[in-house]
Amino acid sequence: MFEARLTQGALLKRLLDSVKELVTDANFDCSETGISLQAMDNSHVALVSLSLRAEGFNPYRCDRGFSLGVNLNSLNKIMKCAGNEDVITLKADDSSADSLCLLFENSSNERVSEYELKLMDIDQEHLSIPETDYDATVMMPSAEFQRICRDLMVVSESVTIDVSKDEIKFTAEGELGTGNVKLKPTSTIDKPEESITIELGQTVSLQFSLKYLSNFTRGTPLSDQVMLCLSDNMPLLVEYKMDIGYIRYYLAPKVGD
């Protein structure tokens, strides 16, 4: 028997909203420690890795590990039927899981809706992501990163990210001209969510697709801060951390001529 009840159902709505553009079908791997998902986009350029800890649900029950093969478009359609204040419960019979039950209860509990989503068999290749000691780790307000991606998209569909000890610089060059945004570390004690920090092993400069980065910023509502990890000739890691877990996006770099 699998049951996971999340009081802040809106979180699940936002999480699914932040992956729906990237992947269409994915396996939710459920175990007694929690729920995780790893999926690449069709072009194998980007990957999303989601992890929700069992402690974040109440109750959480997963008698034995199993996978829920889900078409994310269909799941998103059903999630649209949940109110933002609803408590969401996921249930499945973990022996013969051929469907996932979703229960939406409103706060005063006089409205309960129940949906069943047909599950699919998805054989997905799994990537092993090595623990990396990154050359640069940048923390910044997630809204700031979203704005930089959106602004520089008007100039080009590629962005070069340069990180040095006291600056992170985003540069775009295109037909119309060029644009760049430079951020300096700040540490506003009273507003930690506004702070910008740079942890530098060595300077790094990499080029990425802004189309994918903009797509990743769908995770902005999940966290005030976003973490960017860069290492030379390694995929970029973009992480939005939540109390209940994290959503991580990996993006392979572009190599110039």
Binding site: M40, S43, H44, V45, A46, L47, E125, H126, L127, S128, I129, P130, S158, Q207, S209, M234, P235, Y250, L251, A252, P253, K254, V255, G256, D257
Partner: peptide, 14 residues
């Protein structure tokens, strides 16, 4: 010209 790398170049499929 920029070439977009693939993740499978960096991460091993298991």
């Amino acid at each position: 010209l920029e070439i977009q790398e693939l993740l499978t170049t960096f991460f091993v499929q298991v």
